[in-house]
Design a protein around this nucleic acid. Structure first.
Lengths: 144, 144
DNA sequence: CCCGGAAAGTCAGAACCTCTGACCAATATC
DNA sequence: GATATTGGTCAGAGGTTCTGACTTTCCGGG
């Protein structure tokens, strides 16, 4: 939290924000309307659907918040809710075709960013970074 | 934004959130009342004070938002506003003694986290990570 | 010196995000 | 079958952030 020598986590934050804004800007430019909270939630949805409660856990929000956002995403056509065949209480949140198109664009932008980072850092350091982050994830991601 | 192979930036996000929550929990436990937005703003304040507009730029929020949060931080005793001797329009936002105590605790927690990461990654990879992130910052941080 | 543009903040209003608490329905456990 | 648990919704409140309009002050060119 100091200014002098920022903690590595602060650099994580800066880099993540930069990517996030690139993606969001590209989506907006392409006509995909979505807020930050909405896209963060979408990013956690499995290809084969996920229950609201688990989605909330992964995104680290309450199930009420997740429900609120899924309502909006559903209205915008990015996701759809289908009954869970294994449990009548639950429903599965799945990516709808419109959401799939948005995700495809998002991935494209991410790849562009990766390419830029590779150009700046060099392929070896980028690979090293990925390797180290994967190991760090083991102790920072409760849903690894 | 996919589930299969998360982008490195997503791992950044996860790791940053983990640290942030550790710090916030420690502050809360020690009796320092502060929200996420408030602490993110405080983290951007220079030791010798900063103008609201620049603070807003660094924190990547509008000056209205920054003003709103500084109002709260001032009421809580974490910061104080003093006139800017060089410009009668401006005021400098500075850390108050209470805020300094909170920052000291935050830094202590950050050091604990660093120690844990060193234990998990090994000193070499931790140093490597810091080195690579510093270089990555060159192209991701507009206020480097 | 004075005028107009730029910069530092503030005020007002709206939208958005997130939480706590209470609740219902379906499931699992014993 | 009674009870606890789980999946989800409803209601309400608080917190965060934005856009737009405005005031005051500063600065550079006539």
């Amino acid at each position: 939290m100091s200014r002098d020598e920022p903690h590595v986590a602060v650099l994580f934050h800066v880099a993540h924000r930069a990517v996030e804004q690139r993606v969001l800007a590209a989506l907006s430019e392409a006509g995909f309307r979505a807020t930050l909270a909405q896209s963060r939630l979408v990013a956690q949805i499995d290809p084969d659907g996920i229950r609201l409660t688990e989605l909330a856990d992964r995104a680290q929000v309450t199930k009420q918040t997740a429900g609120f956002l899924v309502d909006q995403l559903e209205a915008l056509g990015y996701v759809e809710r289908t009954p869970d065949p294994t449990d009548a209480r639950a429903r599965l949140v799945r990516i709808a075709p419109h959401g799939r198109r948005a995700l495809a664009l998002a991935r494209k932008v991410e790849q562009q960013v990766t390419a830029e980072w590779r150009a700046h850092l060099g392929p070896d350091d980028l690979a090293e970074l990925g390797r180290i982050m994967a190991r760090l994830r083991e102790i920072t991601d409760p849903y690894r």
